[in-house]
Design a protein around this nucleic acid. Structure first.
Length: 490
RNA sequence: GGGCCCGUAGCUCAGCGGUAGAGCAGCGGACUUUUAAUCCGAGUGUCGCGGGUUCGAUCCCCGCCGGGCCCCCCA
């Protein structure tokens, strides 16, 4: 850059300097972006070898310490990092001068023998080295790293470099999901794939996203759950199915809500709620212990012990515990003043009884359910797809898994009475017409399928990110997602 | 949508009416076992954006943009 030009930003100067180094490397006949570094081992493997053993490692330079004729650096790869030492008297004057063309952030491949410095750090005494990739931008500061939450989310690659634990959570998640599959496969479930684009999104209380298909010139919704498609597969004769699939809900952002997330759902023919309870406890024990090595975890100040059998809370009992006997309020009109008394500003005439119950539950009851437990015996009003209890048609055969005041699992005996299901849809339809955007849409195709007969079936679903956030003691659900949604810049 | 807070160098942060500072990184130099290496030297900015008040605004006021936390809500 000409000296008389107005000064560019600091970043531009640094970048320009690195591009110059790049050009010098090329002048010297060195390719700054070679295709490979054959025969390398990872730094974790190299660490296991005895002193004096030749090793060959590659990684990103994350720290330099230059002392004249001797230079120390830390090379980081996915497995960890290892110190290297470059010495003028070992690599030769000419090659030693090349380090002036290297920067923190560049990738380097080295070979040499392991030794221990006098302060005890295992180090590769480099005999040969070559640049593997030149970086043009400077890395975040070595001591504090990145703290700006916006940059951490928007530039996740940078956050991962500045703090390798960001990547650790993503790797741990991979193991967690793999164990889900392993467990369900072992129980005889088969993994299925169902459509993301739907004409009628169903299976959950949520507002959908819309999109458009050009050649059909038709609007579609992005799915909000996997449920109805899976039940149609059960109608079709499959008896144990599961899917880990992305769903999309057009709702707010918060520390425990995303707009798109992975839902696990499974459906199990000829199983009842009791069988489902047993399976869910074994399933959770398997994936939690397999991933974290223990069933006793901590979220914030809360102790979470997933050792079966879990305690059970009854939905109606919990309401009695806060002085509300639900059967005494059989209609929305009767319940509305109670909801308003509990400070629910959203509670207004026209809102259905189920929604009011759910609002009171979420405000007053759910936050108190800390230790892992089942919540059972939900009112039918909030469970339009679940089978009624045989001896009390106002309640359904349902279970939710609760912990730390949050829902981390939901299952029920699936409603397979097509006429009852039709009435439930009609009720949901009325609620939608009354302005409840989250009420279920009427799905005639699903009803038709049910009319061919669905065997008794238990189903279960859990939001992987939500669950994993709590298991990893992450303050925000965004911490367990690689690239959470952000508002576009400009 | 409501309340509170934040936005200054590539990064981490000071400064808060008189036209901007430190550490790290970068640049030049010394140094052949360092550990946030050390030492010497020079440089580094649309102080988020736009208005207003003022002789003068990074600082005070208003608006906007982006972000965070809390409340509300969907898992």
């Amino acid at each position: 850059m000409a000296p008389d030009e107005p000064s560019a930003s600091r970043l531009e100067e640094i970048r320009a300097g690195r591009i110059q180094k790049l050009a010098k490397l090329r002048e010297l006949g060195i390719d700054p972006y070679p295709t490979t570094f054959a025969g390398r081992e990872d730094t974790a493997a190299a660490r296991e070898k005895p002193i004096d053993t030749p090793v060959r490692i590659a990684g990103r330079i994350v720290l330099w310490r230059r002392h004249g004729g001797s230079t120390f650096a830390q090379l980081r790869d996915e497995s960890g990092q290892l110190q290297i030492q470059l010495r003028r008297d070992v690599v030769g004057e000419e090659k030693y001068e090349l380090i002036k063309l290297l920067d923190i952030g560049d990738f380097l491949g080295v070979s040499g023998k392991l030794f221990t410095t006098k302060t005890g750090e295992l180090t590769v005494g480099v005999e040969e080295f070559s640049i593997l990739t030149k970086a043009l931008r400077p890395l975040p500061e070595k001591w504090h790293g990145l703290t700006d939450p916006e940059i951490i989310v928007r530039k996740r690659h940078l956050a991962m470099i500045a703090d390798p634990s960001v990547a650790e959570v993503l790797k741990q998640r991979a193991g967690f999901v793999r164990r889900m599959r392993t467990f369900l496969d072992g129980e005889g479930f088969i993994e299925v794939a169902t459509p993301v684009l739907e004409s009628v999104p169903g299976g959950a209380d949520a507002e959908p996203f819309t999109t458009h298909h050009n050649s059909l010139d038709t609007d579609f919704y992005l799915r909000i759950s996997l449920e109805l498609a899976h039940k149609r597969l059960i109608v079709g004769g499959l008896e144990r199915v599961y899917e880990i699939g992305r769903v999309f809900r057009n709702e707010g952002l918060s520390r425990e809500h995303l707009q798109d997330y992975d839902l696990l759902e499974f459906y199990w023919a000829y199983a009842d709620l009791e069988a489902l309870k047993q399976l869910v406890q074994r399933f959770y024990a398997s994936i939690i212990e397999g991933t974290f090595g223990t069933l006793k975890l901590r979220y914030g100040d809360d102790e979470l012990d997933f050792t079966p059998p879990w305690p059970e809370s009854d939905y109606f009992d919990l309401f009695r515990g806060i002085g509300i006997d639900l059967p005494e309020y059989p209609t929305a009109e009767a319940l509305l003043p109670i909801a308003q008394k509990h400070g629910l500003r959203e509670a207004a005439p026209g809102i259905g009884r189920g929604r009011l119950i759910d609002m009171i539950y979420k405000k007053e009851i759910r936050p108190t359910l800390i230790r892992p437990q089942f919540l059972v015996g939900h009112p039918v009003d909030i469970s339009p797809l679940a089978k009624r209890e045989a001896d009390d048609p106002s309640r359904v055969q349902r279970l939710q898994v609760l912990m730390a005041g949050s829902e981390v699992g939901n299952g029920f005996a699936e409603l397979n009475d097509p006429l009852d299901q039709r009435e439930r849809f009609e009720e949901q339809q009325r609620l939608r017409e009354g302005g409840d955007k989250e009420a279920h849409m009427f799905d005639e195709e699903f009803l038709e399928a049910l009319e061919y007969g669905m065997p008794p079936t238990a189903g279960f679903g859990v939001s992987i990110e939500r669950f994993f956030m709590y298991l990893t003691n992450s303050p925000s659900i965004r911490d367990v997602v690689a690239f959470p949604l952000t508002r576009p810049l400009e």
